[in-house]
Design a binder for these strands. Structure first.
Lengths: 331, 331
DNA sequence: GGCGCCTTTTAAAGCGCTTTAATTGCCAGT
DNA sequence: ACTGGCAATTAAAGCGCTTTAAAAGGCGCC
C-alpha cells in the first residue's frame, strides 16, 4: 500500500547517486567500503528490496527460468523442488506455469514467454518434436523426462527402457513369466516405457506372454486395470505399471479383490514417488533421481545462457530399481 | 534467440506511432477502425506479443496476483486450477510461489513481493496472525482455508467445525459412539478441525469417548495412526481424519491389518480430494467446494484492487458431507 | 605546480512499454 | 475565409532499475 521504498529513497538517505546504491546492492565492484556500509545500512533501515520487474527490464538479462509442469503430478512436484533449489544456487529465479483443465501446454508456454523467461524447462511435455523445435528457435528449451529428436532441444531424461528392463529382469529372476504391463496412455513418456516392456519381454523369449493393459498414469487407471486383471483366468503373476500412481491403483484393486500382494501377484511401479515409499505401500519401483535430473536441466539452461553453448546436449541418466515389498516369487 | 519483435517493429511496419499500436493492442478507444485492422494484421504477421515485464512497469498497475502454495498438496492443486481460471476471466495474471523443503513461507512470499504482485493469495498459510497483519500492511492479503483474526486480512474459508460436526452427526446417526479423531498437526487448519471434533463430541454427550490420535496431514501419518488403532483393544468403530490423505493412510493400514472398511470400522476424510473419489477408495468425506473458494478469493483481491474496498471481508462457506462407501453402521 | 594514473562517484542513456497532453486534420457552421 | 469542435494520432514523459562513459578526486612523481 504505502509505496515500497525505491532506489531513489535509499540514495537520498545516504546522499549518493542511485548508481552507487545499485552497484552496492548487487555486490558489483566500484564503491568503497565506507559507501557500501552506509548504503547497506540505509537499505536495511528502509526495508528496501529491488523491484524485480524493473531490474529485469533494465538488465539486458532477466535471469528467469520458466518451468512448465502439471501441478497434479507428484513427480513434477519433486522436480520443481529441486529446480528451485538449484536455480537459487546459480542465481536464477523460477516462474512456474501449470497445466490445468482449461490451460493447455501451448497456453502455459505462452505465459512463460510473455514473462520473457530466458529459457524454459518443460516437464514431460506432450508437444510434438516439431513444435518443440519451433519453440527452441525462440528460446532455449530443456525437456525433462522424454526423448526429443529435434537438434536444438536439450534433453534430460532417464533411460526408460532400461528401467523397465530392470524391472523385468528382477521379476524374471524371481521366476515370473506371465508378466503384464499397464500402459500410461498416449504421452511420449508412456510410449518409451511401453516400448521398453515389449523389447525386454522379447529379449527374454517371453514374446508370447506380452500383454498390455490400457491405462493412463492415474490411480483411477490402475484401479480399472486391476479389476480387469484380478478376475482374468490367466491372471498374470506379476504386473509392471507405467508409473507409481497406476501401481497404487492396481494394488488397491487387488487388495479389494482379495489378492495378496506380493504373495499372489507382484507389482512394480515407476518413479519412486513419495507414495511408493510409504511404509504400507512399500512399492518396488524405479528411481529416476529427480534431484540429479533437476540439476542437469538447470545447468543445461545456464550453459546456454551464460556460457554460450550452442550444440544440443542430451543427458541420459540410468534409472535404478528399488526393491521393496511388492515383489516376491510367483505363487 | 533472434530478438522477439517489439512495439517499434509493429509500429514501423504499419507506419504509425508506437502509441497507436499500444492502444490498438489493448483495445483502448481512440484509433480508427482502419488503423486497428492494419495494426492487428501487422502484429499477427510478426507474431508480436507484448513483453509483460515492460508493460507491468509502464502501467502503474501490474495486474498480477501472487499465490503461495504447497505444491505437494493436492487440494492446493485444485485451488490453483480454479484461481488461474478465475484470474484469467478478470484479466489478471497469476504467479505461483511454492513451499519446498528449503523454502519456507517467508521466502515464498518474499518472491511474490519482489515481483510486485498487487495482491497475494495464501493457501492454508501457517503464518501467525500478527505476521499476516504486517504483510497486509504492504499488500492486500487473502488467506484461504483458515481463520485469521487480523482486521486487514481477507479470509475465505469453509466452516471447518461444521464440516467435522456433519461427519460426526452422520456417524452418530449410523449408531457409532466410539469415534476417534486423527489429528493434522500444528497448523491453523488442523487446529480448527480438532476443535470441531471436540465440540461436536461434547455436544453429543460423548465427551468420554473423545480420543485424538496425533498425526500430520500425510498418508504416512494416517498409516501410523492406523497401525496404532488397529490393535487397540478398545478399537473405535469409526475414525474421522483431519484430511483425506490421512484417511487414505488409515484405510490402507486397516486393510493390511485385516480390518474391513466400512464393516468393521468406518472412516471419514476431509477435503473431497480427487483421491477420495477414486472408485476403490470411495471415501466418505467433506467437500469444501474449491471452485467457489477460488472465485471468492480472486474477487476479494480484485475488489480491493479495482473497486477500492477497504474493509476486510470474511467469506465462510458451508462445507458439506459427501457420503460414499467408507462409512456404515458399527459392527 | 603540473601531469598521469588510479579509485570512486555520478550523469545520463536506455530497457519496452503505457499514458497524457498536445498536435494535426477535417468538416460544419457562420 | 475563419473559427470551433471533434476524431485520430503522436510526441514525450515516465515506470524503477542497470550500466557505461565520463567526471571528480586523490596520490605520487618529475
Amino acid at each position: 500500500m504505502d509505496q515500497r521504498p525505491r532506489l531513489d529513497d535509499v540514495a537520498a538517505r545516504v546522499g549518493v547517486s542511485t548508481a552507487s546504491v545499485s552497484l552496492v546492492l548487487r555486490g558489483a565492484p566500484g564503491p568503497s567500503a565506507e559507501t557500501r556500509r552506509r548504503v547497506l545500512e540505509a537499505a536495511a533501515e528502509l526495508g528496501y528490496r529491488a523491484d524485480r520487474t524493473a531490474s529485469m527490464l533494465a538488465r539486458r538479462r532477466r535471469h528467469l527460468l520458466g518451468v512448465m509442469l502439471d501441478i497434479r503430478n507428484p513427480f513434477h512436484a519433486e522436480l520443481v523442488e529441486e529446480i528451485q533449489a538449484e536455480a537459487d544456487r546459480v542465481g536464477y529465479e523460477v516462474v512456474l506455469s501449470t497445466l490445468t483443465r482449461h490451460r493447455d501446454e501451448e497456453r502455459a508456454v505462452e505465459t512463460l514467454l510473455d514473462f520473457r523467461c530466458e529459457a524454459v524447462l518443460l516437464l514431460g511435455p506432450d508437444f510434438t518434436d516439431k513444435r518443440l523445435g519451433a519453440l527452441a528457435g525462440q528460446v532455449p528449451v530443456v525437456t525433462i523426462g522424454r526423448r526429443v529428436a529435434d537438434r536444438d532441444v536439450d534433453v534430460v531424461r532417464s533411460a526408460d527402457h532400461l528401467g523397465v528392463a530392470e524391472s523385468l529382469a528382477h521379476l524374471i529372476g524371481l521366476g515370473h513369466r506371465r508378466i503384464a504391463f499397464v500402459d500410461g496412455g498416449r504421452g511420449a513418456v508412456a510410449a518409451a516405457r511401453r516400448r521398453g516392456y515389449r523389447d525386454a519381454m522379447r529379449r527374454a523369449g517371453l514374446q508370447d506372454e506380452i500383454r498390455i493393459i490400457p491405462g493412463d498414469h492415474t490411480e483411477e487407471g490402475g484401479i480399472r486395470a486391476g479389476r480387469l486383471l484380478a478376475v482374468a483366468d490367466d491372471r498374470p503373476t506379476a504386473v509392471v505399471a507405467s508409473n507409481d500412481r497406476l501401481a497404487v491403483g492396481l494394488m488397491d484393486a487387488f487388495l479389494r479383490a482379495g489378492l495378496e500382494v506380493p504373495h499372489q501377484v507382484s507389482i512394480v511401479g515407476y518413479d519412486d514417488s513419495t507414495l511408493a515409499r510409504l511404509a504400507h505401500i512399500d512399492l518396488t519401483t524405479i528411481n529416476q533421481d529427480a534431484p540429479a535430473q533437476a540439476k542437469f536441466a538447470v545447468s543445461a539452461a545456464v550453459q546456454r545462457l551464460d556460457e554460450g553453448r550452442r550444440e544440443r546436449v542430451e543427458t541420459v541418466l540410468n534409472p535404478h530399481l528399488v526393491i521393496r515389498g511388492s515383489t516376491a516369487p510367483p505363487p
